[in-house]
Amino acid sequence: MASYEILNPTKKGEPRIKITVEEGYDDRGRRIRFTKTVRMKSLSDRAIKKAIKEFELEVATSNKVTKNEEISFEAFVLEKWMKLHVKKNLRLRTYQTYNSTLTNYIIPFFKGMKLSKIKPIDIEEFFAYEKDSGRKNLKGKYLILKSIFTKAITWKFISKENDPMEEIKEPNVDKRHREKSYYNEEELLILFKVLEGVQPKQRIAIKMAAVLGLRRSEILGIRHHSVNFNNNTILIDAQLHYDHEQKKFLLGPPKNGLARTVIVPDKFMEEIKEYMKEHRKQKELCGDAWEPAIDENGEPLDLLYTNPYGYPNHINSITNEWVKLLKRHNLDYINFHGLRHSFASFMVAKNSNIKVIQEQLGHTDVRQTIQTYSHLTKDVKLKELSKFDDIL
């Protein structure tokens, strides 16, 4: 943990800050604390954050706290890699995913081992254990370990010659029969018929995934000003996440860091407009009881999807309501993200321009769209191959 205080400027008028970095407690229970006075060009938030980060890295990569060769794998991962790299450089959702994977799978296996003593055989045994246990996401775990030891080398906790990941190849995983992942056109028609009897908030959320190709977190991040009725578009420039450590909702950038504008069909835009009118009425009725989430600047988040008092619904609420709907109407199971796949597969089956699909989905490269969604549904494949009947 780091903090700072602004000091009197130097005789030349240069601003200064004193940075304090705390590294827990020593064996006698005394707080381990390091300080440094830094001359600054300015006292902007950005400049101060940069100075703090640099000093934290200096402390982390020095021998002040623990000799590098003595640090445990667990301590390095949690106190160094997670704090100085993942939390500061990656998105909240990625941080949460990494934290879960480390806590449940990786750290328990390497617990008690020193970072510098881990050998390639230990890595191989880890993946063998994961495979034998029938666990998933081996590629994700491989990438996490790769990043951990890459940073350990960069920060000089281990030498490049002692990198246990150097000769480790990404694990091969037997392709398993995948569960149904999207709806075809006929199944979408059935779904839309069912949605006619569903509450507007849930109906529109589902359609935003199936008709517009939006991700769940993108739907939850839509604000009233994001919707443009004049040209039937919605600006997708944020995702809503919940920070379990700070216990508050946060708006972060879209998945690839780039905002995009999605086109909305006329009929669906009318549904959205009606829902937004009712949402505004609810706000007026609540008056002072309306309690929206607050952003980092202290401004209220004018979100489209909230509870009756303006506060964001639980991140999993859309998914939970979706599963209930499937069971209630005996529909084939696909997860909520499968609605996004349904949108893409429907567009491909209708021979839509792949560039249009890419832009609607928010892929940075059209090749990603082609690789992910160029598969055709069984019906379309049969239709295309039946053309041979004309010449046989």
Rank of each mutant, 00 (worst) to 15 (best):
M1D: 07
A2Q: 06
K11W: 04
K11N: 10
V38K: 13
S42H: 02
S42Q: 02
D45P: 05
K50C: 02
A51Y: 06
K67N: 12
E69D: 05
L78Q: 14
M82S: 01
N89K: 10
L90N: 01
T103D: 13
S116M: 06
D122P: 05
E125S: 14
G134V: 09
R135C: 06
N137H: 14
K141Y: 09
F149H: 12
K160G: 08
P164F: 04
E167F: 12
K169S: 13
P171R: 02
V173E: 13
V173W: 04
E187S: 09
L195A: 10
L195C: 08
L212A: 04
R216K: 15
L235P: 03
I236W: 02
Q239E: 15
H241E: 14
H241S: 09
K247P: 05
K248A: 06
F249L: 06
P254C: 10
D266G: 00
D266T: 07
E270C: 00
K273E: 10
K283A: 00
L301D: 05
D302H: 09
L304T: 10
Y309W: 14
I315G: 01
W322Y: 11
H329I: 05
Y333Q: 11
D365Q: 12
T372L: 11
Y373D: 06
S374K: 09
H375P: 00
T377S: 15
D379L: 09
V380R: 03
E384C: 02
I391N: 01
L392F: 14
